[in-house]
Design a protein around this nucleic acid. Structure first.
Length: 853
RNA sequence: GCCCGCGUGGUGGAAUGGUAGACACAGGGGACUUAAAAUCCCUAGGCAGGAAUGCCGUGCCGGUUCGAAUCCGGCCGCGGGUACCA
């Protein structure tokens, strides 16, 4: 009998699938289709266990659906534009394109041995001219439909490197390379009008029943629909009134000051005549642009000297301050502050000695606000002490509604629905992205490129005009010739747009492209109609908001521009968000005091301590997301070399629920390998045995049908770890069973089928050993026989006052009255009642009996 | 700061209002073996007890319920997102 030789087995069956075209996606008129997609990877160069886990989950679904009679589309590609390629070019020379394609080749070579049932013929990378050329065509169609426009927006500006920085390149408000304090600077940029669809994107969330509730909630909060009041404050100097938007107009009588964003037009207007104000505003514009940075920054204010009249009392004058926490992008860039009922406003007013006016109190506690703002839930009733619409006791929401009605009736304000969602700025001042296909002409202005001129390709080693990453900034902007072109409208010399697109654009429609990856238009309608939508989308929770929201927007845009059918507005029918694979970090201290990270394979673990080969002890940081920079990455190739791909696949699914993070440990991998070896051995033993049928057969087959039921449920509900636990138990049952060899072979063939989505190579081998017909990948999924699942009697636990005190066995079809009668005769119940009557008797059929005494 | 999650034995975890700890790892004991490896069997939350058994126990505090890991409120810790990382 030969041993389990994973390497040989895996190569054999991968070749067999390839030859049979098992995973080639074909449209079929007589099969239901199933489209399963995992979020495609960034080509960092090496795959890690996180990728293995993610793609194994998708593969389990894909292979399972193939055996249930579906035409399956399961493609793979690469999200290949982005900053790391440019950073690599800056650091070690070379070209982003060469770096990226080398990485892609490397990663494909690492993924193939894992035996994923992917249709590799559909593979593409977003940096392929073929792909981004079609993306440029989409952009032009979106532009024509009014879904794209230009406006000014702020970016992180490094004043030393004279370049735009990404948020992750701003560390503590300073540029990552220059160390200079970052400034906020305005540039004219391209935007997608996602805000036009805010309401649609919000209401459609209700229909996404197979998305995690947490993702829908995050998107709902992100879109942030609110109803508030818009009105203006008259200035005492007769200047243009200050328009404000507030979601708490009911607190207007508690107004303390009017606040302007440092980027507000009034501030900019005053800067010229007021050097002190200009200096303060400039200081406030320093630091990064992220919401987090703005919210966490120390609250700073400056009195402009302007005064406005309170809309309800012309004699009441409020000062106008500039405040660094007010965003120009939200509402009107101006607010009024009510410190009594907003902690941030209160902190600001205490700091600058501005008045605090209570407008309502808790019903049972009329205490004036001192250092803590009183901010009850909007549904709580409060007592109003300072209001104008005749309110006494009312909830915050009632007061808001009443205030808006009052303001509208008097004509000084208007109720308005507002969204937190901002338009999607897509311009990036970088080389390694999809060029935005527009041209600037002195005569014609901003002109879209003609479709026949697409793709507008990135320049690459064009003679002596090579792009240059040795200096910061956008190489396209510096390129001597690339930007020179003819105006598509008048033919005169003109300049190309040198900004490229946000990489989120690339990933917002790749799912549609996979349905016809070589089409000469962005999509092929017949293919899109057949394959869309994605039936199961799988990816990280970190994409809960931006990627998924942008994809939902893009699908709608593609419908509007005729690239997708109406039915594809929500492109992902079901979403599953998987957890990360983590691993301990091993570090020592370098000479400069900074941590030095060591690879797991270089660390020898003894009694919970780790040592390098020279004996140095390392510090162990328990568990962190696998990350190249921390060297805590476990290379799946090592696992495949030692144990085989099936072991790696089995383990990443076995020990942890898919939505949660999983810690990689080699001991777990060994256990998985042991199990697969056991299954292989059982199969070879059973195939060679010849024992007669006997009275143990039925018990084994009953367990088999239970396993079919449980594993099928596990696979369909992403309960892979639970399914695997059942498979361990079923394997042990087979091993211990004294059933005849025919029954054992039947059980083992079913075991091989149930394991096949997870361990496809071993399953094919076992199937073949046991005389199964054809490929297990094509064999119909086993069906549980309901008759074999019925149990004659069940065990029910008995509780006394909610605590388990005993159990009893009873016929499975016993009536509730029978159960009650039998329970009352049980020893523990008789003892607990001590001759008395039960206070209450609860019987949950099939589950539990609780006697309250 | 704000939004969204998560927290259960020595470890990964199971249990979605009904027997807390399935399954697995590490540990302990045993069988087989000249020996080892491999394999198989037993054991295993804590405390007390010879045992039967009892008490405690799902981050912490409180609540709802006949019954809470699970639902509600408050707190602590960790993770994800925060619009130019992907």
């Amino acid at each position: 009998m030969s041993a389990y030789d994973a390497a040989t087995i895996e190569a054999r069956w991968q070749a067999a699938w390839e030859k049979a075209g098992t995973f080639k996606a074909e449209m079929s008129a007589d099969k239901p289709k199933y489209y399963v997609l995992e979020m495609f990877p960034y080509p960092s160069g090496r795959i890690h266990m996180g990728h293995v886990r993610n793609y194994t989950m998708g593969d389990v679904i894909a292979r399972y659906k193939l055996t249930t009679g579906h035409a399956v589309l399961h493609p793979m590609g690469f999200d290949a534009f982005g900053m790391p390629a440019e950073n690599a070019a800056m650091k070690s020379g070379g070209h982003p394109k060469d770096w990226t394609y080398a990485n892609i080749n490397e990663m494909v070579a690492q993924m193939k041995p894992l035996g994923f049932g992917l249709d590799w013929s559909r593979m593409f990378a977003t940096c392929d001219e073929e792909y981004y050329g079609q993306q440029q065509a989409l952009f032009l169609d979106f532009l024509e439909q009014g879904l794209v426009y230009r406006k000014n927006a702020v970016v992180n500006w490094d004043p030393v490197d004279m370049t735009v920085l990404a948020n992750e390149q701003v560390i503590d408000g300073k540029g990552w390379r220059s160390g200079a304090e970052v400034e906020r600077r305005e540039l004219t940029q391209w935007f997608f009008k996602i805000s036009d669809m805010a309401d649609e994107l919000l209401t459609a969330l209700d229909g996404l029943d197979d998305w995690p509730a947490k993702v829908r909630l995050m998107q709902q909060n992100w879109i942030g629909k609110s109803r508030g009041l818009q009105f203006s404050f008259e200035r005492t100097d007769g200047g243009a009134p200050i328009e404000v938007y507030t979601t708490r107009p009911d607190t207007l009588m508690g107004a303390s000051f009017v606040g302007l964003s440092p980027d507000h037009p009034i501030v900019k207007e005053m800067e010229g005549a007021n050097p002190e104000l200009a200096q303060v505003a400039a200081a406030m514009r320093k630091g990064g642009t992220t919401e987090e940075a703005l919210e966490k920054a120390e609250k700073l204010g400056f009195d402009t000297g302007l005064k406005v009249k309170h809309p309800l009392n012309p004699d009441w004058e409020l000062p106008v301050w500039i405040a660094n926490f007010i965003l120009m992008d939200y509402g009107t860039g101006a607010i009024f502050a009510c410190p009594a009922h907003d902690q941030r406003d209160l902190d600001f007013c205490r700091k600058y000695d501005l008045p605090v006016i209570d407008t309502f109190f808790a019903l049972d506690n009329p205490k004036p606000v001192e250092t803590e703002a009183f901010v009850p839930a909007r549904t709580d009733k409060v007592r109003w002490v300072n209001h104008f619409a005749g309110l006494d006791m009312a909830t915050g929401q009632e007061a808001i509604d009443a205030t808006i009605d009052f303001a509208e009736a008097q004509g000084w304000g208007k109720g308005k629905e507002q969204y937190r969602l901002r338009d999607w700025g897509l311009s990036r001042q970088r080389y390694w992205g999809c060029p935005i296909p527009v041209v600037y002409c002195d005569t014609c202005g901003v002109v879209p490129e003609k479709k026949e001129n697409l793709p507008i390709a990135l320049p690459y080693d064009n003679g002596n005009e090579e792009i240059d990453f040795s200096v910061p900034g956008n190489p396209l902007d510096r390129h001597p010739t690339w930007r020179n072109c003819a105006c598509p409208s008048c033919g005169a010399p003109a300049r190309r747009e040198t900004d490229t697109m946000d990489t989120f654009v690339d990933s917002s429609w790749y799912y549609a492209r996979f349905t016809a990856p070589r089409a000469e238009t962005p999509t092929d309608m017949d293919a899109a109609k057949y394959w869309m939508n994605v039936d199961q989308y799988i990816g990280g929770i970190e994409h809960a908001i931006l990627h998924l929201l942008y994809s939902r927007f893009f699908a709608r845009g593609m419908i509007k521009t005729g690239h997708l059918p109406e039915s594809a507005a929500e492109p992902f029918n079901a979403l599953f968000t998987q957890g990360m694979v983590t691993h301990a970090i091993y570090q020592t201290k370098g000479d400069d005091g900074r941590p030095v990270y060591h690879y797991p394979e270089d660390v020898d673990l003894r009694d919970g301590s780790g040592f390098l080969s020279d004996g140095t002890e390392v510090e162990i940081v328990p568990s962190a997301k696998m990350s190249k920079s921390k060297n805590n990455v476990v290379d799946p190739l090592n696992i495949i070399r030692d144990f085989g791909a099936d072991t790696a696949r089995w383990f990443v699914l076995s020990d942890s629920p898919p939505e949660r993070d999983v810690e990689w440990t080699a001991s777990g991998a060994e256990a998985a390998f042991k199990h697969l070896t056991r299954v292989y051995r059982l199969a070879t033993e059973a195939a060679g045995a010849d024992t007669a049928a006997n009275d143990q057969d039925e018990a084994l087959l009953r367990e088999m049908h239970k396993a079919i039921r449980d594993v099928t449920l596990g696979v369909e509900s992403f309960g892979f770890n639970a399914a695997i636990a059942k498979l361990y138990a079923f394997t042990a049952t087979i091993q211990k069973s004294k059933a005849g060899s025919e029954a054992k072979c039947t059980a083992l063939k079913t075991l091989a089928q149930l394991m096949a989505p997870m361990t496809p190579h071993l399953s094919e081998e076992a199937w073949s050993i046991l005389g199964g017909e054809g490929l297990i990948a094509d064999a119909p999924w086993p069906q549980a026989d309901k008759a074999m699942l019925v149990e004659a009697s069940i065990t029910m636990p008995i509780q006394i006052n909610g605590k388990r005190r005993g159990e009893m066995s009873i016929a499975a079809d016993a009536s509730k009255a029978d159960v009650e009668a039998l329970a009352l005769t049980h020893d523990v119940v008789v003892k607990a009642l001590d001759g008395g009557q039960p206070k209450k008797l609860i019987v949950v059929p099939g589950r539990i009996i609780n006697v309250v005494v």
